[in-house]
């Protein structure tokens, strides 16, 4: 259950090896979260994430195979977790890939795959999670979107549009769940220094997985609809969205 101070006791991570997700799990376990299910593509990294959750103090940690692009299999993976582990208080959707814009532009199939990875496949899994949680009568779904989805940039619009889609989907899902006991939190990080952005020059207001996690854990406990990390980006992007298109187009890569 989620307690009065907003602490969940169990979490299912979609994209269990994600750096940001690992930091969030590390923030949740010391509270009450002793059941951690990490769904992801089997890898050493995924196993290491499970070990880290155990080391942090979780006593029921498991990994399950999950690939967002497996559209037919996704919902069943999620449902199976709800069946086997009982209540799932929190579903954290963290899977995602950045892709290389130039390559994607020249390889439409790869672009479509990225869109499936970041949006279509997650949407299928999240619909299954929402149905399970609705039946369960409570829960929180946390979807990691991005400020890149607030207003996609020329240099990054394929990834950006997957996040716009995912973000819009999550907001709608949240509205559809009002009254069901289930809430949805959309997380919009800025540039997070880490694996996904390795080798890139940090954008202004860059942050770390730990800082994102802190904001997310706080947002979970207060039941926030939207979390920006760092929080100042809420205001930065409120302005960015108002810029004339001709100016926005010139935003550097």
């Amino acid at each position: 259950m989620i307690d009065a101070t907003g602490r969940p006791q169990s979490v299912l991570v979609l994209g269990g090896a994600s750096e940001i997700a690992q930091a969030i799990v590390a923030g949740l376990v010391p509270g009450r979260c002793r059941t951690v299910i990490l769904a992801g593509r089997p890898s050493e990294r995924l196993d290491a994430a499970a070990d880290a959750a155990r080391a942090a103090g979780a006593d029921m940690v498991e990994t399950v195979a999950f690939d967002t692009t497996d559209l037919a299999g996704n919902p069943a993976v999620v449902e199976d977790v709800f069946t086997r582990f009982g209540d799932v208080d929190l579903v954290l959707a963290a899977a995602g890939a950045l892709g290389d814009q130039a390559e994607l532009e020249s390889d439409p199939q790869a672009a479509a795959e990225l869109i499936t990875t970041n949006f279509t496949g997650l949407a299928a899994a999240l619909l299954a999670a929402a149905r399970c949680m609705r039946a369960q009568g409570y829960g929180r779904i946390v979807v990691i979107s991005s400020v890149a989805g607030d207003r996609p940039r020329k240099a990054n619009y394929i990834y950006g549009s997957t996040k716009s889609g995912l973000d819009a989907f999550a907001q709608g899902l949240g509205d559809s769940l009002v009254g069901s006991g289930v809430g949805v939190t959309v997380v919009r990080p800025g540039f997070v220094v880490g694996r996904m952005t390795e080798g890139m020059d940090p954008a202004p207001f860059s942050t770390t997985p730990e800082a994102v996690a802190e904001a997310v854990v706080k947002g979970i406990s207060s039941g926030a609809d939207v979390v920006y990390a760092p929080p100042v980006l809420r205001w930065v992007f409120a302005v960015m969205k108002q810029l004339p298109r001709a100016v926005w187009r010139r935003m550097p890569g």
Binding site: M1, R84, D87, C132
Partner: peptide, 20 residues
């Protein structure tokens, strides 16, 4: 009850999920 679940007096493990 939710209290029972939270403090470990009740469990739903093994309960099925709704089939679509």
């Amino acid at each position: 009850s939710d209290l029972g679940r939270r403090i470990g007096l009740c469990s739903d493990a093994g309960a099925p999920t709704p089939r679509p």
